[in-house]
């Protein structure tokens, strides 16, 4: 069979002992080699889903396979395929960075001589090699997160799962982490990540699922999902100044300042038409950008209507 699934989830449900129904029947497939985003608002069930995949949370019902290995009867093989970067810091903060990564290699059965080389490579990749002898509690928040990435990769997992890996990481390091994740994805590692930075998902991921209130509300290729946007708002910075919003047939235009316009472009409309109209009026555009990230608009639309209907519920 071609195209082995890195992850296949079937009708997964989870009710916590306190009665909270975190997952209400999740179906999800991630192809081998994919770079997959799992998005959703706070409390949607992302961490719960990842917890179940990585054997940290007991499921209520459902079936999960990792590279064909069922979590029910082939769990050790499944676990060996996975590396995970959790949302919450979960390290012995009194251990050195080096020991944390070395021990993790040991738990995956990598003998110390081999583990030492892997550990060094990972700590260097994540720019932590200089801090290798420091206790983890002495690291900044972003460094701790990078340390958890190094730890997750030390056994060269086929599937890397990252739960908000770039939360609290500065822009420069975030970009270098993106580059790094892209690289290991190109080398064949399947990656699943959750994030609240939709730009991150849009930049990195080929496929996405949006989860809300324990259910998948959208699951498609990134490009297909972006096409579903019915309109986009562009911000135009003008070379010259205007006193009032120009009237452009078919486009809704708003004057932000004398040198800035916001224009709504609907699905069937082309930006070429917009520019012809602007040209006719001798309005020169020096730069153009999306008002919000495109994915963000869709995300808000998909997950917001929920808030209205659950309004007035008990929490």
């Amino acid at each position: 069979m071609c195209g082995m699934k890195a992850l296949a989830i079937n009708s997964l449900t989870k009710t916590y002992p306190n009665g909270i129904q975190a997952l209400r029947g999740i179906d999800l497939e991630v192809e081998e080699g994919d770079f997959f985003a799992l998005l959703g608002p706070n409390g949607a069930g992302k961490t719960t889903t990842i917890g179940i995949i990585t054997s940290l949370v007991n499921k209520t019902h459902g079936d999960i396979r990792v590279f064909g290995h069922s979590l029910d009867n082939d769990i050790y093989a499944a676990k060996a395929c996975i590396g995970v970067v959790p949302q919450e810091i979960n390290m012995n903060l009194y251990e050195s960075c080096y020991d944390i990564v070395m021990n993790q290699a040991g738990y995956y059965g990598i003998p110390r001589s081999q583990a030492a080389a892997h550990t060094e490579a990972m700590l260097r990749q994540l720019q932590l090699w200089d801090r290798r002898d420091d206790q983890a509690r002495g690291l900044s928040g972003g460094m701790k997160r990078r340390l958890m990435i190094a730890r997750a990769l030390v056994h060269s997992p086929k599937l890397l799962i990252l739960d908000e890996p770039t939360a609290g990481v500065d822009i420069e390091i975030r970009r270098s982490m993106w580059g790094f994740l892209k690289e290991i994805n190109e080398q064949g590692t399947t990656i699943i990540l959750t994030t609240h930075y939709l730009e991150e998902a849009e930049t990195l991921c080929r496929n996405i699922a949006i989860i809300d209130d324990g259910k998948i509300v959208e699951n498609d290729r990134m490009s297909a999902i972006l096409r579903k946007l019915h309109q986009e708002v562009f911000v135009l910075n003008l070379e010259n100044t205007v006193d009032a919003a120009p009237v452009l047939a078919g486009f809704k235009v708003r004057l932000v300042s004398e040198s800035e316009l916001e224009v709504q472009v609907g699905k069937g409309q082309s930006i070429n038409d917009l520019f012809s109209l602007l040209n006719e009026r001798n309005i020169i555009v020096s730069s153009l950008r999306n008002k919000t990230n495109r994915l963000e608009e869709l995300f808000i639309r998909l997950t917001q209507r929920k808030d209205v209907s659950t309004d007035g519920s008990d929490h």
Binding site: S55, L56, Y76, P86, N90, N103, Q104, Y107, G109
Partner: peptide, 15 residues
Amino acid sequence: GAKFQGYLQEMLVSP
């Protein structure tokens, strides 16, 4: 300690 600080997870996710 391992359970409370969370690093028991390092072993629980491993094979």
